[in-house]
Design a protein around this nucleic acid. Sequence first.
DNA 1: CGGCGCGGCGCG
DNA 2: AAAGCGCGCCGCGCCG
Length: 569
Amino acid sequence: MASSPAEVVLGRSAAGDVALIDLDAAGMPVSTVAVDIDALPDVIAARESAGDVRWIWSDTPTWYTRLLSAGVRVRRAWDLRLVHAILRDAASVQDDQGLRGETSWDAAATALDDLDTLFAFGDSVGPPEGADEALAEYRRQRATIAIARTAGSLRLLAVAESAGALTGVELHAAGLPWSVEAHAHLLEDQLGPRTAGGLPARIEDAAAAVRSALDDPGASLDSQPKLLRALHRAGILVESTSQWDLGRHDHPAVAPLLAYKKLMRLYTANGWAWMDEWVRDGRFRPVYVPAGVVTGRWASSGGGALQIPRRLRTAVRADPGWTLVTADVAQLEPRVLAAMARDTALAAAASGRDLYAGVVDSGAVATRAEAKMAMLGAMYGATTGESGRLVPRLRRAFPRAMGLVDDAARIGEDGGRVSTWLGRTSPAPGDAWRALQSRASGAEASGGDETNARRAARDRGRFTRNFVVQGTAAEWALAWLADLRTRLSTLAAVEAPDAAPRSGPAFARSPHLAFFLHDEIIVHTPIVHADAVADAVRTSAASAGRLLFGEFPIDFPLDLKIGPTAEKE
DNA sequence: CGGCGCGGCGCG
DNA sequence: AAAGCGCGCCGCGCCG
């Protein structure tokens, strides 16, 4: 059993430099040192090499971005802003510390644009940066967790969330190795040569084909209302201009229009302009926003990191002498659901490679496609169509798992709140929602009031239904990331110059995380370490499962690949 | 001119 | 083929 890390609070001191406050095991301050801001990276590096430290700070991007760019990496942190948000909303918390009243910690994350100026300690836009305020907030958080009924889970969540915050900053700093050559080749292949002004040739060709097929030389293809009218004039009676709607119609304009939309999407979302703006020195560096989604999932800002088309993944290329280890979890959400619900029948169906095949073997449905549709429908709250029709069969086969999501939905419909496995709690309904419900139950409620209220209640039920599953899956992924990050950091740097990465911070000279997307990771590694990295990826997945669910028999099989990333299917 | 809602579409 | 959850970003069109 490793001893607990030392705890050090970091914050601005009254004199304008940085205070490091060492805490004892009870969280009481035992000593304070003040250091000049320019000396901070060296001081922190020295403490890191002297022993295991958890750095307690207001906000990870604020502090860690500058440290990383000075070449200093830390192992552990406690992000007061992120943990505050968890505890503020957590249903399992008694707020006798007055934590919920400390609203200055509710401030949004620091904008990345501001990071360069933050260490001037001027007018900060983020949460309090002062060491005394940070210490007081940490003591509130510690005490709040200690008396919660689920102290162990909340502490685990706080630590995992903070490790995620470190990882998010590191992912941005390291970036995803991206070949502008491969990307440009794909663009030219699909769109034609880059043009100085006007649209690329393939897009113009498709547009001309559409207008010709519509017999409408002036048809606007980019304005939805105008396009809809043009389609109607040509006798194509679609209700929308979506590709699914269009695809159901058999008209010579449909194929070129779908092609136009596809090419236009590539051009506007991930074309040359995107490349120029987001790829620097062979790296795509999105801004990751840990816990940016209410469920605890990460969001991203800039570059659309969560929406890189699979077809563009061919532009992800390791540096010379390096390779990529790509892994994603097969059916993470239903596995997490099985474990949360302690549903041994679903866990048994999930055992091995493919959960959906296991569901078929259980006899609940006939085909893999039905199993997938039914399971997604159960977790998302489908009520109509084939998905809605199949869900009752899952209810009979897996009553515990389905009972868990059905309960979550009912609580949401009633205006209640639900929590993830580790205790992240969904937000309470807003005033408008409450007003709608009480108006509908009043004496002079109209039929319209009741319809609207019922629809809003069901909308919220679908949200809370999904919240418990999506949020717990996000917790599993955090645990996976955190454990993997630690394991990777123990793999030695490679000294061979031909295996040096082309760009990036110091820590990226050895195997490191390069991408994360909900249930998928990409590690950039020297080729000599690829097998060790793959082992670490698998081991950390197993470890994450045990950390959350103990000995409950659920496994989290990975699709893992060493080598160039390829588009799926 | 900027802000915002919407339709549409990419990702899990 | 799409429906049920969660996102971000694009262009358009409307508003002030």
